Amino acid sequence: MKNKREGFGVLHYIIMAAVSFAVFILCVCVGSVTIPAGDTLTAIINTIFGLPIPEGISGPIILFVRLPRVLNVALVGASLSLCGGAMQGLLRNPLADGSTLGVSSGASLGAVLAIALGLTIPGFTGGGIMLMAILFAFGSLMLMLSLAHKLDYSLSTNTIILIGTVFSMFAHSLISLIIAFSGEKVKTITFWTMGSLANTGYINVIVLLAALILFGALILRYCRELNAFAVGEDNARHVGVNVKKVKLVVLVAVSVLIGVCVSIGGTIGFVGLIVPHMTRMVAGPNHKRLLPACMFSGAVFLMLADLISRTILSPIELPIGVVTSFVGSVVFVYIFYKSKKVN
């Protein structure tokens, strides 16, 4: 297994890209109305090159309903998985991800508050929710780091995780309080907190892609430092890593990326927790290989989860967060059981 991991390279990324594309086409084709793959590819290619779509092809369904949704799902899955892999490496804890550190909870609190108050940005659908989610995710991170710094000047991993867990409980209690007083918006908030990427459009694709390019690239820039963290913070200092700076930069990038994802898709659990575990079994612990691989596997995982959510009880659509939580919890128990059995 070790040799296979060390040999993980360009060919494996090509295979993962091919699998991601195949799953992408499958998710665009399948739904309440099944569309042949050839028609789907024809509609997409003709639109890209400005050619007319042949009659008989369900162009509007492909281009304005399924394509933007599946693109958003893939980008959210890639972003959450990348964030989870980076946080697990940074904090050397397999339970670290946006939900356990309170960043997702902070983003959710901001988004729920925006929905309850009806905050909007003129000309930008969902802009108020997105802005509040990013601000609260970043503010939550700053609050947790400040408290951790007061309690433990070295910003140890255990201190950060403990404060993040406590803050998550606090944020969820505030969300419950807001729901209790939100009146007719209870249904919207409740469905949103379970996670859903229905009715997302191309503007969301642009925002997610821009966030992933900017902050994802920032996270990937610190792959070497994350490898040093894997051996321990003291070792990282000895090899010249500025531990506090790397922690701050990576956590800030993660918080903004998670804030954007939460503002668009709601609370989608277990992606950043489970996918890096599964990917690490194939790609190995080297973050230069692991983090890019996490993006492919995260996109595939969430696209399949979204496909299940909208087809398993068709015409009823399940929130995607319900599917990821169910699958993720089962996979997590299995991984935990296998790891204990090996040990």
Rank of each mutant, 00 (worst) to 15 (best):
V103E: 10
G139Q: 02
V23C: 14
C261H: 02
V207F: 02
L145R: 01
K244W: 06
E233C: 14
G272M: 13
I15R: 05
I160S: 04
V256Y: 01
P54V: 02
M194D: 07
T40G: 09
A211T: 06
L162R: 04
F229Q: 11
I179S: 12
I161P: 00
A17M: 14
T157Q: 15
G89F: 06
A228F: 13
I312Q: 06
T200L: 00
I312T: 12
F138H: 01
G102H: 04
L248P: 01
S156W: 13
H172T: 15
K185V: 09
G127R: 00
H149S: 10
V331P: 11
V231K: 13
A107C: 14
S176E: 14
S255E: 09
S20R: 05
V275W: 04
I179A: 11
G269P: 03
I53A: 05
G123E: 08
L71W: 00
C294E: 05
R5T: 14
H238E: 14
T40F: 02
L75C: 10
C223E: 13
E225C: 04
T47R: 03
S58E: 15
V275C: 08
L151R: 08
Y202M: 14
I178G: 09
L155C: 13
I160G: 01
A210M: 06
A86P: 11
F326H: 03
S81V: 02
F215G: 01
F124Q: 04
V103H: 04
T125C: 10
F296G: 08
Y153Q: 14
L209P: 10
I48Y: 01
G110L: 01
A78I: 11
G128F: 00
H149Q: 08
G164N: 10
A137E: 01
V243Q: 06
S182M: 10
F167G: 03
A283E: 02
S329C: 09
N158A: 15
F8K: 04
A305K: 03
G216Y: 00
G106S: 07
S58Y: 12
N286W: 03
C27K: 02
L174M: 13
M278D: 12
V260Q: 02
L248E: 03
L257C: 10
Y202S: 11
A43L: 06
I160H: 05
G84H: 07
Y222T: 12
G110V: 06
M130Q: 01
L109I: 07
P60E: 13
E184V: 12
G102L: 09
F181E: 15
I61M: 07
F124C: 04
H277I: 02
A210P: 08
T324N: 12
F181Y: 13
P122G: 11
K2L: 14
K288R: 09
A114T: 06
I175E: 02
G98Y: 07
G201F: 00
I129P: 05
P36Y: 03
L251M: 14
